[in-house]
Every structure is written in C-alpha cells, then in structure tokens.
Nucleic acid binder design. Structure first.
Length: 110
DNA sequence: TTTCTGACTCGAA
DNA sequence: CTTCGAGCCAGAA
C-alpha cells in the first residue's frame, strides 16, 4: 500500500468508498480524517475528479447536509434520488435527520 | 512560470 | 441574529 505516494484524491476516494449504505458524510469530516480539516475544499474538488470512478459522491455533502454538489450530477435531482433510494430523506436539497444518517470516518474508521 | 477558481469550513465583526 | 473574510490543496489556463 502506498500512502504518501498517492495523491490526496486517492485517499478521499477510499474514505468515500467506505461509506456504508444509507449513510452520508461531509467534506470536512473526510478532510478531518485525512488530517486536514482546512482542506475540505480539496475533498470537494477531489469529488470533481471522481467522475468515472466507483466513488459514491452522492453520499458526500457539505457539513450542513446540503446537496451543494447536486448540480454536478446528471439531471437536477439525481443526487437526491440516489440518497432517497438509500432511505435518506431530503427536503429542499437538504438532508433530514442528518445526525442519524451522518457517518463520521474519524469515528467509524479511526 | 504565475494566477485563479473551486461540490468547504470556521471564526470574527 | 446575519454577513464577510481568510485558509487549505490541487488542477487548469
């Protein structure tokens, strides 16, 4: 396993791929897990390159549970439908019961 | 090479 | 209460 050899993106992809079904996480949570709480933007930017990969970017939202990146998905509510398909309630592009479906990598993966 | 932007977050006024 | 600014890293022009 290469660690420092891989880019910041690869680490983000791994964490996102480890998100369990019916759960979501935030960019900051991933960044925090990677040790860069201030690099939350990079996580979001990394998702921009997640297209064509097995990275469930639809499970990643901002810390408010708002689907900020839904505009990057096909259609206008694809991201919402994907999350709803996992049992996650979304209203006005915002995840409901965020505390319930929130998945913290730093707490689960450690 | 430099400069800018970005699917973010936090702190301060 | 709301609004604004700064910081982080990486890729593209």
């Amino acid at each position: 396993m290469k660690a420092s050899t891989e880019s910041f993106f690869e680490r983000v992809y791994e964490v996102v791929c480890q998100i369990p079904y019916g759960r979501v996480t935030s960019y900051g949570a991933i960044a925090n897990y990677l040790g860069a709480v201030r690099s939350a933007r990079i996580v979001g930017y990394a998702m921009n390159g997640s297209h064509g990969k097995d990275v469930p970017a639809h499970r990643v939202v901002n810390r408010k549970g708002l689907l900020t990146g839904k505009h990057h998905f096909e259609g206008t509510n694809l991201m919402q439908q994907l999350l709803e398909g996992e049992g996650i309630k979304i209203v006005d592009n915002q995840i409901q019961n965020l505390e319930t479906v929130f998945w913290n990598p730093s707490d689960e993966l450690k």
